[in-house]
Design a protein around this nucleic acid. Sequence first.
DNA 1: GGGCCGCAGTAGACACCGTCAACTACACCG
DNA 2: CGGTGTAGTTGACGGTGTCTACTGCGGCCC
Lengths: 211, 211
Amino acid sequence: MPADRGRPEDLKEACVTEALAIIAATGLETLSLREVARRLSVSHQAPYRHFPSRDHILSAVVARAFDHFSAYLDSRQQVPDNPAQDLRGMGLAYLSYADEHPLQYRLMFATPLPNPADHPGMMQSARHAFTLLEQGVARMRATQGQPCTEELVTLDALFIWAALHGLAGIRGGCAITTLRLSSDILGQAPAHLLGRIGQAMGNPCGAKADG
Amino acid sequence: MPADRGRPEDLKEACVTEALAIIAATGLETLSLREVARRLSVSHQAPYRHFPSRDHILSAVVARAFDHFSAYLDSRQQVPDNPAQDLRGMGLAYLSYADEHPLQYRLMFATPLPNPADHPGMMQSARHAFTLLEQGVARMRATQGQPCTEELVTLDALFIWAALHGLAGIRGGCAITTLRLSSDILGQAPAHLLGRIGQAMGNPCGAKADG
DNA sequence: GGGCCGCAGTAGACACCGTCAACTACACCG
DNA sequence: CGGTGTAGTTGACGGTGTCTACTGCGGCCC
């Protein structure tokens, strides 16, 4: 049964899918409930029956992006016997995701939601990804034999997340145009950044990354 | 002559000021050309005489934020005889700015402008800040006596910028609500991050930062 | 000085948007 | 059979960006 054109069976589901398609095609700003309804061959108020407001449909799209992101990080092949390498792989996966799915990435981290507290599913997905990172740091610290507070793990995870998040944002957003960086530099940036993070964490594995 | 209420002398200038005030008061989404005009006691088309579109007035506001940011970084007290310390001071200044002027910071780095290439002044201000950082890195490398390509300086500057930018974004945006981080951790984060950056750059000055 | 032109600002209209309220169609249940 | 709740429709309202046509008004050239 083709649910694409002609009134879809599950309208709520179809709205989210169609909204994402619109955003992908013409940008976040031009997303409108009415356009979604139009594409679904449905009255302009039908989506309103399933979502209290435009923000709620948008947050549903964002939540989906977070799930996609979490699944991506989870499905990455792990290296349990080498936590340092594993952490590096996770960082690489983070940057790869931002590179391969810039739309989803921007939806997650650059979408202005009025009050994120309204949408618990979204927050949970985000928190999940951060917890993965914390666990990676903790495992690495354990093999390094360093004494390590929970607080210190969180701070290090935050440092790593910040660096990854920052680079992803720069690469995806304003790098070439605003900062006028060559795509050559931008291509080297992930490896270099991960190398520097490795050094910062006292990990020799990353030290040789930039020659 | 009070140019605030009653038709302002320089309408173009007044539009930018008033737009910023509106954004500060009620958020970016609710900014409208008509509201700007209303507050300026002017017809809804008057601002349109000075700005081709709503995006252009917004980009003027963003450009102003970039100038503010650049001035802030420039006015920071420098430590010419200790480049490492100087670099750290610059990082601190960066994070301080994001902390003290979250609105301007978000305007600069989290505002969706359709095509930034249209607004050269904006780009120039951003590039200026990045160049400051590159020079800081280059000076530090020089005192370290390390051989250093121009490319490597840029990559390191990019690493530092990414970490700072990432942390600022996390702190200003989604930290407590989405990532559920305590404000205690968040308060420690800048010093810790700068310390880790110091370590990554092979600089002992930052190594003791997190105890 | 008088006509002319360009510029700043005004007024009205258009299409679009989110949202509210009232309505219809229909399945289900007593 | 009537009642009830749910999904969807229709129409309206106020707000928005933008287009077009209009009014003043100061400077400029003849």
